[in-house]
Design a protein around this nucleic acid. Structure first.
Lengths: 185, 185
DNA sequence: TAAAATCGTTATCTTAAGATAAGAAAATGA
DNA sequence: TCATTTTCTTATCTTAAGATAACGATTTTA
């Protein structure tokens, strides 16, 4: 964190005293559908994945890697979760009750403005992502991902990428083959 | 606003003194691509639309109706806008410099926690929308919209709805015909 | 009010994605 | 290490979306 903001010793101590750091194995499920949890996650190293299961099919809608945080919908609204969260790789992350975030927020005023600015930026980024997704065709979405998050294509299984891109694994495979063909010419 | 939070006279005066209320005609363009503006919008009555133009084609990615706010990406990052914003209907809205929001935020501490909570909720809603969009087929997206925002289908032109749903107008038209056929049986 | 532009639908053809099946390659685990 | 499971690819068939064109209907505006 000190990469991003400078903290006093007091602040560091407070954060460390919370004992929220976890190291979890690949495949571990952090949150299941129907579960009520008020925890939020922040990835320090590794990758976690958010997915739905409909008709027995996994539908991946987001990945979170280094320095990205996931505050599940269920933690905000205090309702059972609609989706699952699991680890794509061995992952080190913080797991903290959502109110701890609010406590920190109250204790350290200088975090407050940062929070507004950050959450605005996050919201804006989220919206741009959504816009891009809507505007692009499946093939363009894959090419965009290749541009913007080449790491994901390396570290995440194809079938999870596929549903993240809004298609089935076979279509992604075919699409990749088609692109390879084109680039040969 | 007093529908949502109770305000003191002081607070009301401050807000009214800002003189940010605007009444704009249908079709008015509030923001153009390339323009640098630091204004954010909040719709009191009517409907505004956010859209891109690529290869001369309009691509609508969002609508904002009563009690919904749009803080453009360009206002947050202070960069030229990538997209356009225009009025779908005659609309009454507030137009305010983004810093005014921050000023209010600083002046009235009780807005601060609300802001964190609200922006978290907004972010969560945004993410759920995105998830839904990714998971659903074009036809399912239309049926979802019919469920969740039936007003939009009434008040917005078909071709704008189409790109909002990620397809061309002819496909939406065909899809609607297909649904009508099915429901007849 | 008349001409022009915009809008929604329908039809045909083309292209690509979904469904299903099957086989090869890689990873996992006992 | 070897068997099992998972993952990725390829192929065929079906279905639906994109491209293009054309035609009224509606709206705009000159």
């Amino acid at each position: 964190m000190s990469k991003y903001i400078s903290l006093t010793e007091d602040e560091k101590d407070t954060i460390l005293s919370l004992d929220i750091f976890r190291s979890v194995k690949k495949g571990t499920i952090l949150l299941k559908r129907g579960q009520k949890s008020r925890d939020e996650y922040f990835v320090l190293k590794g990758c976690i994945r958010k997915y739905y299961i409909t008709d027995g099919e996994e539908k991946t809608t987001a990945f979170f890697t280094e320095m990205e945080g996931l505050t599940p919908h269920c933690a905000i609204n205090n309702t059972p979760s609609e989706y699952f969260v699991s680890c794509v790789e061995d992952t080190i992350l913080t797991v903290a009750h959502i109110d701890i975030g609010v406590e920190l927020f109250i204790k350290f005023p200088k975090l407050q403005l940062m929070c507004k600015v950050l959450s605005n930026e996050l919201l804006a980024k989220q919206q741009l992502n959504f816009d891009e997704f809507k505007i692009a065709s499946p093939e363009e979405r894959y090419l965009n991902l290749l541009q913007n998050r080449p790491d994901l294509i390396q570290r995440v299984p194809q079938h999870q990428l596929a549903s993240f891109l809004g298609m089935i694994p076979q279509s992604l495979s075919r699409l990749r083959a088609r692109i390879m063909e084109k680039s040969k010419e």
